[in-house]
Amino acid sequence: MKDNPYKISAYCRIKEQRVSVNGEIILENSGIDFPAFIKSVYKYFDTDYPKFFKMDNLSKLAFMAAEILIKRGKIGLEKNQNIALVFSNRASSLDTDRKHEDSIKDLDRYYPSPAIFVYTLPNICMGEISIRHHLYSENSFFIFDEFNPGYLNDYTHGLLEDGKADKVLCGWVELEEDAYDAFLYMVTKNGPIEHNAEAINRLYKRSWEI
């Protein structure tokens, strides 16, 4: 393997009613379900983006993780910056797929809605983040059986090396009903943390075992 000039500059975790950035807990709100929790996160971070309320739950989760990472991870977003998004999860968009399925199961109660159907794709959450931050950059969504730092590392490395992106916002965004887990990290040319599969895995574990 060649020299690895890429680093992780910041990371964020949202899981079980807790938000942390760079290993520091920022917010904890126990005893509430996901919709109430993510709304409290939205408010806590002074977010002003009405489109948020139209999003499905997976998009809300991914959107807030990106939002927090950019705000609290001190990541400056210059105009026209080329930040690729490389996301992954296990359940794809099944949480919303089941809602669409409920609306078509019964021909007597048949009411499919485009506002739900459009979210039956996992990459839509990356589209939402791209719109929010004006990112005209690559989006790739992978489905793995579990968090797979090896593949994410290789792929991100390739994007940066080929000059396809200046930075890569990378990670895992999983949601099914009240079980959710978002772990996003930014890979750049500068940063305090090594970027390789072992380091990514360490951060993934450490950001939860705080």
Partner: peptide
Amino acid sequence: EPIVVSNACVSGILAVAIAKRFIRQGR
């Protein structure tokens, strides 16, 4: 391990680009 790509209607052609990148990375 299998790599599943699910990226709406670009998935099929994006998979080609992804395969190329993994090969170029030596994986």
